[in-house]
Each structure stands twice: as C-alpha cells, then as structure tokens.
C-alpha cells in the first residue's frame, strides 16, 4: 500500500511538472489552428505528449506520424503494431483523470460515440485538443485528414503511396488469381458455430480485411447473403462459400480454426479441400496502416496459393 502511494505520488509529480510547464509551451507561437468536426482547435505544431484513445486506429496513426506517445487505451496493441515498450496501456474504458495526469498536449479519439465511456471525445478537449478519427471512412482518408491537421500531409502521402506500391506489386504478381478468383476473409465463432465474414461491407462496420481486398481489386462474396453482422450459419456454408476459391481464416487465438477443422461442412468446401486456406493470426478487424500492411501480406500469401 505504501509503495503504491509513493508510486502514485511520483507519477503525480511528473504529471504536475508537465502540467504546470504546459502554459509555457502554449506561450510559444508553436500552435496550429485546425478545423475539425468539433470546430476550430489550436493544436501544438510539434506535439510532445500524445494519447491515443483507441488502440486500433489512433495508436497506429500516432506511430505513423512518429508522434511521441505517452499511452493508449481500448485493447492491447496487436503484435504487428510497433509500439515502443515504454508506452503504457492505460485503463479501459479510458480514465479521464489518468489521461489528465499524463499531461498530453494532443489526443486522438474516434468519433463513433462522443458521449460514451469508451470514446469520450466530447470530454477530452478539457484535457487537451482532441483530433477525431472516423470508422466510416477508409484508413487512408483518416490518415490524410490527420496529416492535414498536423501539417504533415507529405507523411500521409508517402505512407499511402508506399502501401499502394505494395498493393500494386501484389496485383502484378498474382494478376490472374486476383482478377479471376472469388475470396473471403472469415472468423469462426466456435461457441455459436457460425462464420463471420470480414471481407464484405456489413453493419459491423468498415472492416480492414474488406478495405484491403477492395484495394487489391479482389472479388468477394456479396453482403446480401450474410446476416447483419456478416454471419454465415453452418448450413449455408456451401451456399455462401461453395463458389469461393480461397479463404483467409482469421485466428483470434480462441480455438476457432481448430474447431472449424472438425466441421465436415467446412471440410467439404472446395477451397478447403484444395488447401486454399491461409490462416492469419490476431484480431485484424479494425486498424490503420500497420493492420493494412499486415493484411496485404496475408492476402498476398492467399493469392500466391491460388496462383500455384
């Protein structure tokens, strides 16, 4: 108990020092005025302490612009997102006081529900200027928008161009497969025994596997044959996935693929019989450039199988 109290006092000292030095930083002319959906904001021209509320988009964006992160929330960073080891995972749902004590000078937060516990965008400006991201537009649009606000459009342009190059290379490598074959990215819910298709636009949101597949120009199963969140029950596996040539199987580490392997109706899908299933580890449903890159490699591997 004593140790904890001491620790929190020390943290406070650091935080307080940063807090009280903040006005000095503001006095310097190093701010930019930007226009967001929340109105006009003054943000630091060179942010020193950045908090990303959502690990799936703000975190990846902050790393992309090389912003100095002091913490992030929502869920633990995925293994393919290069977070420095000293950036802490904060309380989830976010604890405003904890964020305040980190004395951030910029916060990145999705605008999905500004009054919610999980994405409290409406309350963040009291701590520091908050820049929104939006789950309904593509990761490139989000990145470009943020780049514009930060005055670093060129970084966004470079990242997007490098990604486009990677996508183009995959397309050239597997042109026939990409154009001719039908593919799907799926996650298996072993408890309710249903597939959740993540390569099509559904009510679930603008999911990354679908975005990257669209960039590649691949062909996916139509959302009209899926449930509202992309569900496919076992008995319509054949109807929905029978014509699919290759499947990207997303493994959340919850035993899904192992359970799926025991289902005869999965086993008899042509794509599975032919061994054209590529497993990709980790929850890559939402994200930004790193997840996009990770998924591009996964699709690349699947199309390589399909070309073989």
């Amino acid at each position: 108990m004593g140790g904890r109290a001491k620790l929190s006092r020390r943290t406070f000292a650091t935080g307080a020092a940063a807090l009280f030095s903040a006005p000095a930083a503001l006095a310097a002319p190093a701010t930019r005025q930007v226009e967001t959906s929340l109105g006009r904001l003054d943000i630091p021209a060179a942010p020193q302490r950045v908090v990303a509320i959502d690990s799936r988009i703000g975190l990846e964006q902050a790393l992309a612009f090389d912003l100095p992160l002091v913490g992030y929330s929502h869920s633990r960073a995925r293994p393919w997102v290069p977070v420095p080891a000293d950036v802490p995972f904060l309380a989830a749902p976010p604890n405003l006081e904890q964020i305040l004590m980190l004395a951030p000078d910029l916060i990145l937060c999705p605008d999905s529900a500004p009054n919610s516990d999980w994405w409290p965008l409406a309350r963040l400006p009291a701590i520091a200027p908050a820049l929104p991201s939006n789950h309904r537009i593509s990761w490139q649009e989000n990145l470009t928008r943020l780049g514009g606000w930060l005055g670093r459009e060129e970084v966004a342009v470079r990242i997007i161009a490098a990604h486009a190059e990677m996508i183009a290379a995959i397309r050239t490598r597997h042109r026939r497969a990409v154009e001719r074959t039908l593919v799907a990215a799926v996650h298996y819910d072993a408890i309710k025994r249903r597939l959740l298709v993540r390569s099509a636009g559904t009510r679930y949101g603008l999911v990354m596997p679908a975005q990257v597949l669209a960039e590649l120009g691949g062909r996916e199963v139509g959302a009209d044959r899926l449930g509202p969140n992309g569900e496919v029950t076992l008995d319509s596996f054949g109807d929905v996935l029978g014509a699919v040539d290759g499947i990207l199987l997303i493994d959340f580490g919850d035993g899904g693929p192992q359970a799926l392997a025991r289902e005869p109706l999965w086993q008899r899908l042509p794509a599975v019989k032919a061994g054209r299933v590529e497993t990709v580890a980790g929850n890559c449903t939402f994200g930004s450039l790193y997840t996009a890159r990770y998924l591009a490699r996964a699709w690349d591997a699947l199309f390589a199988r399909l070309s073989a």
């Binding site: 076992l234 008995d235 054949g238 289902e263 005869p264 109706l265 008899r268």
Partner: peptide, 11 residues
Amino acid sequence: GEAALILWQLR
C-alpha cells in the same frame, strides 16, 4: 451430398 451432411451433422 451436402444436404445429407447438413441433415446428419447439423439438423
């Protein structure tokens, strides 16, 4: 066939 599998394995 698939229908038989659905019947025996699922339904």
